[in-house]
């Protein structure tokens, strides 16, 4: 056993700064993915074949290829094509948001389909138009049922976020890597990074349970 934590002590603040970097891009990605996922889910349940096909094709592509590949294409390959030098943060959010939307759309689609058809009929019979019906009546009920599945997706996204280290985004993972290279010791900084990720997921899980409890108020 050759563990020595004293050496990384000066680097701890440096690694901790990564929490903010990770949180910032993960939360933007989650919101982006959720909104796009809802739109895609609505496209999937329309009766218009072309729109449906588009949404299905989107899901097929983003679920059918590795996330790291999508990230690299956006960061390394797209500039070659367009000449636009994309920022690290923007490419990370794009890759994770677009990818997450594919998964979220499937979860939400299932959630919407699981809401009793009578709810739609009751709203229609009252003359409620499509948009408020979806926003006020169908989606709240769907979200309540799929919250555990959504939480799972958010947790996965948070952990997978470590992939952005590969394009040089200064998140927890990348900082741990840098410290490791600096002090020629990898175990300690990686262990610290692992603990930070675990605590973040733990808090996220608790938040999810709290939201779930609130939504079950009407039960």
């Amino acid at each position: 056993m050759n563990l020595d934590f004293s050496q990384i002590v000066p680097y701890v603040p440096f690694i901790l700064e990564g929490i903010w970097a990770t949180l910032k891009f993960v939360s933007v990605s989650i919101v982006f993915g959720l909104i796009l996922g809802i739109v895609l889910a609505l496209c999937k349940i329309t009766k218009k074949p072309f729109i449906k096909w588009l949404a299905d094709a989107y899901t097929s592509i983003f679920r059918g290829t590795p996330l790291i590949l999508q990230l690299w294409i956006i960061y390394f390959a797209v500039p070659q094509l367009t000449g636009y030098d994309i920022e690290i943060f923007l490419s990370a959010v794009l890759a994770f948001g677009l990818n997450s939307a594919a998964y979220v759309s499937e979860i939400i689609r299932a959630g919407i389909l699981a809401v009793d058809k009578g709810q739609t009929e009751a709203a229609e019979a009252l003359g409620v138009p499509y948009k408020p019906m979806m926003i006020n009546i169908i989606l709240p009920q769907a979200l309540k049922n799929i919250l555990p599945a959504l939480m799972n997706e958010f947790i996965t996204l948070t952990k997978e976020s470590a992939l952005v280290a590969t394009i040089g985004y200064m998140d927890i993972m990348r900082r741990a890597q840098i410290v490791g290279a600096d002090i020629y010791r990898n175990f300690e900084p990686l262990l610290l990074a692992g603990v930070i990720y675990w605590v973040m997921i733990f808090i996220l899980t608790r938040l999810g349970s709290a939201v779930e409890r609130r939504m079950r108020q009407s039960d």
């Binding site: 009578g118 009751a122 229609e124 019979a125 009252l126 003359g127 006020n136 009920q141």
Partner: peptide, 28 residues
Amino acid sequence: MEIRKNIGMVFQHFHLFPHMTVLENVTY
């Protein structure tokens, strides 16, 4: 939708909105 505003309907299985209170159901 314009027409349905003026035609009330009551269903066999009620179809109340489960996430709203009774008053919210009526006022929505």
